[in-house]
Design a protein around this nucleic acid. Sequence first.
DNA 1: CTCAATGCTTTCAGTTTGGTAAGTACCGTA
DNA 2: TACGGTACTTACCAAACTGAAAGCATTGAG
Lengths: 131, 131
Amino acid sequence: MTAVENATGPVPSFDPYERGCPSRDLLDQIGSKWAVLVLGELGQNGTSRFSRLRQALAGVSEKMLTQTLRTLERDGLVSRTVYPEVPPHVEYELTALGQTLREPLKALTEWSVLHIEEVITAREEYDGRTR
Amino acid sequence: MTAVENATGPVPSFDPYERGCPSRDLLDQIGSKWAVLVLGELGQNGTSRFSRLRQALAGVSEKMLTQTLRTLERDGLVSRTVYPEVPPHVEYELTALGQTLREPLKALTEWSVLHIEEVITAREEYDGRTR
DNA sequence: CTCAATGCTTTCAGTTTGGTAAGTACCGTA
DNA sequence: TACGGTACTTACCAAACTGAAAGCATTGAG
């Protein structure tokens, strides 16, 4: 980001087109495969447990799911509530900030479902043209 | 994807939550760092040359830019027009399909700029809480 | 004493990614 | 003959990411 002036003084300005700007990394984060799906699932169900997420996101390894959840928690997008029971019980939920991502991510997810066939066709044409 | 029936017979159904579904990979593609920025830049300027994109996306290597552009072209999101001149002249532009991605990606990009500070704060809190 | 349940955490090895840097092609110009 | 400008392409290597599998902690049930 660069420094910009306003009435009250210098203010940080963020731009993902700038090298090293944290907003670029964030953009990358929230657009990553597992994060999009976790956020989507939590947006849909309101709250979910680890095991349920693992089933919903067919094919995630536990490691990746844990890692994704940790990052999302750290970024303040997801809250993690532990119920001190045996066996363990943990609930994940979108925070207020996480909620604000629902619409944008839903739009993106729907786009991919809606247009995947067009894209597949385009790929076949391209491959035929160039091979 | 799974097979689903309708009045005219079996129809493919796509779901990024399914393991191996091509819509999952597509979602990953269109959400990837450089693709988002290239698409955003082309959406903004209508058309752009290789060297201009390289400048706009501060920090991309030529290799990554070429690679991203090729993938986008293959997927039918971007068109590539070569003007047979010396020195070479190539113009990139969004296709009609690419245009439909402008809004969703713009929303995501703006989200990251708008909320990066909140996220940074959340990270600091998290790190303080857990360290 | 062993097992089951849940949510991790760790380790290992293999794959993929990404950057750097150099090379390619073309042709008009000096 | 060497150089510049544009858009790549290729080779190389280190770092990051991934998945599979096994380990861990806790405690009630059998």
